[in-house]
Amino acid sequence: MNPESFRGWSMKLVIWSFLFPLLVLTGGQAELAEESLPSEYQLKAAYLFNFAKFVEWPPEAFPEPTAPFTIGILGEDPFDEDLERTVKGKAVAGRRLVIRHVKALAELKSCHIVFISRSESRKTGRWREIFKALGAACALTVSEADGFVEAGGMINFVTEGTRVRFQINDPAARRAGLKISSKLLNLAKKEEP
């Protein structure tokens, strides 16, 4: 290919690389909707909803029979609005789901699921402070950092390439009075030999 025709060809490539998404967006939207992949945190939001479904909390975890089910986010919220959108209007075991952005560790005890964001996990020693603040509260601790379940956390998200899996520390959950269903336990990533 001579340089001039190559230049013409590469110009077309530039134009197409910008036009192509435009065509897809305007022309092929219905098709694409099926193909489009969720983001990491949309998927994690769906997982959190499922954890609420497949874990059993003792009755004393709820101050009254109609009390809502609270998911607390500790640290910088990585979900943007995906978690709110996911649980909006949803209920688990007859309880309304609410999201709470936890500012002080003392608020943790009123949460049923505590999602500890990466921003918290970067501070060494922070997990221990969190677990101490939780004490014997019936809260499922979930994070997304290496070593979380080894340090005493209950569920940890692990991203494997383009998939999101999770690890479970069942003894820690049982100590807090939580019963994790066998379905969830079976799907969890097993300890590597």
């Binding site: 939207q29 694409l32 909707a33 489009s36 992949l37 969720p38 983001s39 990491e40 949309q42 998927l43 939001a45 769906a46 997982y47 909803f49 499922n50 497949f54 996911t86 649980v87 949803k90 991203t159 383009t162 998939r163 999101v164 899996r165 379905k183 969830l184 799907l187």
Partner: peptide, 21 residues
């Protein structure tokens, strides 16, 4: 773009689901 409601997806399928990076 309309996203399917992921809370309707069985958890077994979530484990296999790919995410955008």
């Amino acid at each position: 773009i309309a996203q399917p409601d992921l809370t309707e997806v069985p958890i077994e399928a979530l484990v296999q689901m790919q995410i955008t990076t």
